[in-house]
Design a protein around this nucleic acid. Structure first.
Lengths: 192, 192
DNA sequence: CTGATTTTTTACCATTTGTTAATAATATTC
DNA sequence: GAATATTATTAACAAATGGTAAAAAATCAG
């Protein structure tokens, strides 16, 4: 059950059996059907999720458009961080793109884990560092690359996402309209 | 001497006097003249800085262009994180835009501090969380806003930066060429 | 299966931004 | 302060992307 999350975390921090044992009772399994919400708009995000299976989308409503900030890769941590950190209503919405199996932990229990084990605190720090670096690369991509290149690189890096995720979400993630993505895909096919 | 950094950190975590006392001997003051480097290309980033005074620019060389990922606000933490974390040669370059007064701490000493005090580990996590959230907002801005709006918001949020930082760096930070920024500034003036 | 809904594609034109090149303005150095 | 280097602006054209509307394709619900 914990295979994937242990693999993920072990790459960042080496935890003892005892430290893992302390965490297990705090973790819950949760299933989401496609289109179900993990965080509603205006709700205070109480949980952080690790995706065992399936894909989540993080987005918000902007003048009637849904702006997709993130499509979770398999086996990654997801939460509406601004809300989760400051316990304020979330403008970000998290929804299941496919049926999902999640491991989730409640904020209070995570806080307890953080405060009881310096190594879990360290996991929190290391996870955030990695997420920050990933986001930095995405900013570099926005500055230096055209939408076409961003699209091609995304296909290379996350080919699985294209099997399950509607193109309109991918377009928004890439920072373009779905019409632009269509045009771009067409021109790529003719290039070959 | 530590006023600004204490103000900054205290907003995230409450540290005891003892915890602060443990940190002081590990912190060094460093001055940089305008255009001096804090991290050279290819160097392994050994230090993280807090800007007491002055502005740093984080950028990298891309096909002969310098791509500015960050212009440090006053009183903020700066490092070339990918290099700092993994101790690999840095593709990111950090350079002083103005004369700077920095507080710096060596990676090994920071690591020691992290491993000795759970609350310092927590500071590391909280700083990363805030930086991650800031970066997320920047991604939303790239997706939803035109360069003109990004420029206007940057003027509101960091008016001081415009007093000291060449426009070409600001243009790159905004994801456009300096020519585009010029055109955009011109049209804004006529709007009023 | 079939009608309804959602998603994707297409087309046309408008807008934004990039590219190149030249000039103007500003800062730096001797 | 004059010469040099750097930075900022301008212009004309090209390329990328957006907006709107409609059609086509795919998916969903009963």
């Amino acid at each position: 059950m914990y295979t994937h999350v242990k693999t993920f975390v072990s790459k960042l921090v080496n935890l003892s059996d005892e430290e893992w044992q302390a965490a297990y009772p705090l973790i819950e399994a949760r299933r989401l059907k496609k289109n179900e919400f993990f965080v509603h708009e205006g709700e205070i995000a109480q949980y952080i999720a690790f995706t065992q299976n399936g894909y989540l989308r993080v987005y918000y409503n902007h003048d009637g458009d849904e702006i997709t900030r993130d499509i979770s890769p398999l086996h990654s941590f997801v939460t509406a961080l601004p809300s989760f950190i400051s316990q304020t209503p979330s403008f970000e919405i998290i929804q299941a793109i496919t049926d999902c199996e999640l491991l989730v932990i409640h904020r209070d229990k995570l806080e307890k884990l953080y405060n009881s084990y310096i190594n879990w605190q360290k996991v929190g720090r290391r996870v955030m560092e990695e997420m920050f670096v990933d986001t930095q690369y995405r900013i570099y991509a926005f500055i230096t690359q055209t939408a076409e290149i961003r699209y091609k690189k995304m296909m290379e890096q996350f080919p699985d996402i294209f099997l399950y995720v509607p193109l309109q979400y991918i377009a928004s993630y890439l920072g373009i309209t779905s019409q632009s993505l269509s045009r771009l895909r067409k021109s790529i096919h003719f290039d070959k």
